[in-house]
Design a protein around this nucleic acid. Structure first.
Lengths: 167, 167
DNA sequence: TTAAACTTTCATTAATTACTGAAAGTTTAA
DNA sequence: TTAAACTTTCAGTAATTAATGAAAGTTTAA
């Protein structure tokens, strides 16, 4: 297989995966491109490689930087900026989980908190409060686990967790 | 707070959460509605409650049944079908994880498998193969963990895992 | 300074995804 | 049978989300 094909296919798959998880396709594709590129790329190069407009490239590069998945590299004597992305998939997942849990779990907990003080005492109200409380408990537990994950170390995590789950 | 408000807010939040994770809003909302409803509901009732069309209701109810998150209930002497959803959040997450990993992890592994046999031996090719291989290893590990999770039992999982991670 | 090299913004347009509702299909009971 | 009660489909439309590209903004070096 030729590198060029393989790269294209990889970028394509990564983009699809991203968009089925609520991350826009271009953002995932730029990320994929930077992961597999041995050196940092300029906006121009990214645009050319993925066939996208300047605006699109710029917006999504900035988003990736927001998420901490991509960094600027300033090359001495070069006017334009270069971008590179980490290649360590463990670090990448930790970042993604960190960002998403920050952006999505906290607000949900916030919104669940208030839903339990109901005036009614009907069966329907009870069912409702039960579901909401369970969900809240569960969410807190998941959040704790994710926090631990974010702070954990790769080798330890896999070695220990896998053997642990194997029991 | 009034039950009616609380219900609306819950359905709304659940819908938003779903759509930020690539699950369509109506599907999540129907699911939310059924979770908090003490009895099974007919299509008609779902339509009225969420203000959606017959077609939309029908399609999304079927999707939820596909995912195993909602079941039909046949009431003797009743012509129409009633639907209800499990209220156990642990079971719900297991189902969701099961469906999504089946639909999304397998295809990714499939696609990664072939990308590593490159003709080129350049630096760029090496970087590429390294990233793809790491990603493949990682994905397999994650898949294994998820499989275990799907098969595990709630009490065991939380009690043991949480205390384990606490170390 | 200023003009070239670059980055960012944003109104417009395009692409994608979800929803509607009427019509076709199916089931049941009389 | 058949007709009423219900479910499913699907072409058309609406809503949402993403992408374009020209214009405005910024930085740098001469």
């Amino acid at each position: 297989m030729k590198l060029l094909e393989a790269k294209a296919e990889f970028i394509q798959s990564w983009g699809t995966l991203g968009s089925s998880w609520g991350i826009n396709r271009t953002m995932s594709q730029i990320h994929a491109l930077l992961m597999i590129s041995p050196n940092a790329l300029s906006t121009e190069e990214i645009m050319k490689e993925l066939n996208i407009s300047r605006g699109n490239a710029n917006t999504n590069i900035r988003m990736l930087m927001d998420w901490g998945l991509v960094q600027k590299q300033l090359v001495p004597g070069e006017r334009r900026e270069f971008f590179y992305g980490g290649k360590d998939i463990w670090e990448i997942s930790k970042k993604i989980i960190e960002e998403r849990s920050k952006r999505e779990i906290q607000p949900i907990l916030e919104s669940l908190k208030n839903l339990k003080e109901l005036e009614e005492k009907t069966v329907e109200a009870n069912t409702f409060v039960k579901v909401v409380s369970d969900l809240e408990d569960y969410t807190v537990k998941v959040q704790n686990i994710l926090q631990k994950f974010i702070k954990s170390d790769r080798t330890w995590f896999f070695k220990t967790l896998v053997s642990f789950l194997g029991k």
